[in-house]
Every structure is written in C-alpha cells, then in structure tokens.
C-alpha cells in the first residue's frame, strides 16, 4: 500500500530524512516510534503530499508522489499536529466544508455520524475557536475520518484527549483496522501503541532503524526494544562523528 525508497528531505542545509526506506502492506497498522525531532512528522507530511522530498521514491496505492498526488489524496485521512479547522466556523460548518471538498454524498447524515462518533454532537453549533484543545483534537479526528479513507496517517492523535476520548479514538482505530484500512500512527505512548498496532517501526535521526511485528514482540518488551533501537543509531552516530576528529588529532 505504501512504498518508500531512498527518501531524502532537507530543510536548508539540514538533512532531516536520510535515505529512508519504509513499506506497509494494505491492512497493516504501523506504529511509528522515535524520539523528538527524529523526523516522524516530516515523514508523514511527505506521505500526505504536503511536503516534497528532495530525493527518493514514494508510492501510495500504486500512485507516485508527488506527480500523482491528486489521486492519492482521495484515500488519505490525516491527523496532524494542528487541528486543520477554522476557528470562526462551527463544528458542523467545518465538517460540511470539508465534506464539500471531498465530494461526499449525503453529507448531513455523515456529519451527524461523525459528530456522534467523536462525542461533539451537543457542541455542534459552537465555534471551534471556543473549543478546548482536546475538543479541537476530537473534531480533527472526525475531520480525518469524514470521507472514510483507506489510508490513515495519524500524527500523535492522542495528544490532548481525555480518558473517554482516548478510548473513543482507540475504538475508531481498532474498527478501521478490522475493516482492513491501513494505518500509520506516530506515538510516544508505547503502551497505547503496543495495544493497537500490528507492527512497530522506530525512526531515529531520519532513518527507520528497526521494525518488528506484533507477534514477535510481547508488549512488556516494547520499551526495551525501543531503547535498544535508538541507542544503536546513536552509537553509530557517535562513532561516525568521532572518526574525523580522531584523524585530525593524528
């Protein structure tokens, strides 16, 4: 479903993604783990066709990015660090607007379903500007699943959600996974990711450094696995950055 080869992304002189390879089969649920600044968000933004890679090949559902991005966007549902909502519109107006942008048929019925799903039916006529952070995040999730996308790219979707909403989101994620949707989710909550995902990939310093299936990874061991994966990469980085200086010393 998703195929990435040799992906490189630079911001100015800084290389954020270095020759990254990544594959996801249809129906897999991949949890992307990694320390702050590892490049998870940057990577998801490229998959979502919001950002252009400097090099490398990205294919989603057989379409090449960025050339055939328009076709890919139909099947993507994205939750990003920001809610992507208009503060001066109400919850239902926001969904109605995005419904039009996605060409959804029977939008009112669908908007009602989604608002029920994220538990905002009672606040549907309130301006998003007046929503708390968690409520905005709920609506952002509703926005992302509005067109029932085949591939979901969720960047730390649990941020700001209360207990009930987190359970709701877990329910949504399980339900879409059960229907064979593909999910790529970044998270810093290993316990939660361990519960949901069928595969764990660790990104560190712009590379996927480890990948393991749920079957081979008991939940209790996930933290050790994560620690080990990022420390390998850090050791390697230390060694490579020490080489030139040791040469100078000689």
């Amino acid at each position: 479903m998703i195929e990435v080869r040799g992906l490189v992304k630079r911001f100015g002189l800084k290389t954020v993604l270095k020759d990254l390879d990544f594959q996801v089969q249809a129906g897999e649920f991949v949890a992307l783990l990694g320390p702050n600044g590892a490049g998870k968000t940057t990577f998801l933004r490229i998959l979502a066709s919001l950002s252009r890679p400097a090099m490398g090949e990205v294919r989603i559902a057989g379409y090449r990015l960025p050339q055939q991005a328009a076709a890919v966007r139909h099947i993507l549902g994205v939750v990003s660090h920001q809610p992507l909502l208009y503060g001066d519109l109400t919850a239902e107006e926001n969904l109605r607007f995005y419904g039009k942008m996605y060409g959804i048929g029977a939008p009112e019925k669908r908007i009602g379903e989604v608002l029920d799903l994220v538990g905002l039916s009672l606040r549907r006529r309130d301006l998003v500007r007046t929503f708390s952070r968690g409520m905005q995040q709920r609506l952002a999730i509703g926005r992302a699943v509005l067109h029932d996308p085949e591939v979901m790219l969720f960047d730390e979707p649990h941020t700001g959600l209360d207990q009930d909403a987190s359970v709701m989101l877990d329910g949504v994620l399980r339900e879409v996974a059960a229907r064979g949707r593909t999910v790529v989710m970044t998270s810093h909550d290993l316990a939660r990711a361990g519960d949901l995902a069928s595969r764990f990939d660790v990104i560190s310093r712009g590379k996927v450094v480890a990948s393991v299936g749920r079957a081979e990874m008991p939940a209790a061991k996930l933290l050790d696995f994560y620690r080990a994966s990022i420390s390998i990469r850090e050791d390697a980085a230390r060694v490579s950055s020490e080489q030139p200086s040791s040469r100078i010393r000689m």
Partner: peptide
C-alpha cells in the same frame, strides 16, 4: 464507550461527479 463505534460511511459516499 468503545465497542459499537461506527465509522463507515453510508453506501452513497464519493459519488463521482462531472
């Protein structure tokens, strides 16, 4: 909560328009 979450769209979704 949990359990009977429903997120599928009604069958009429994504009608291809001109």
């Amino acid at each position: 909560m949990g359990g009977e979450v429903k997120i599928a769209t009604s069958p009429s979704k994504a009608v291809i328009r001109k």
